[in-house]
Amino acid sequence: METNGVRPTPEQARSALVDTERIQASAQALAATPWPNWFFITLTLYVAALPIAYGGAMAGTDWLLPGPAWMGIMLAITAVYGSLFAVAAKTWRNKTGVALRFDVLPKRATVPLAVGLPVLLLGAPFAFRVTGRPLWLIAASLTGAAVSVGFHLAFVRLHRKTS
């Protein structure tokens, strides 16, 4: 339907908008495709391990392992995670055929995550350093893992809902 510059009638405009929304919903379902399970597990393990490794590196005195060993572990798991993320992102893009976006979930979920998770993962090691209580690290580790599982389930639900 070429319009040759003529504006559509309200009914034609309505039909075009309905079609547009159907396509947007379909594209949104693709964009909400969850990570593959192997990467979801990798991400959860990384988020759980990071505060403990960082806490060990930050500790005033050696805690379980010498500080440099914890630092080495933290850098190693971060490097491994970064490499696996690159592989997972490329595989995900090739599988879905759409760009990887971080704004698929509503802002009320992603903004608290973007602010809260770094505070949790980096703040708990500081609290551990000050108080000497490893409970901070364990709590941050468990909370981080729970957040990772929660977001994965949110993507699974959104993907199913919009598919």
Binding site: A16, I23, Q24, S26, A27, A31, G97, V98, A99, R101
Partner: peptide
């Protein structure tokens, strides 16, 4: 219009 709708939502698509 449909192509634009898809690309606007997906960001980039094959």
């Amino acid at each position: 219009l449909r192509i634009c709708a898809l690309l606007d939502t997906a960001g980039e698509a094959e």
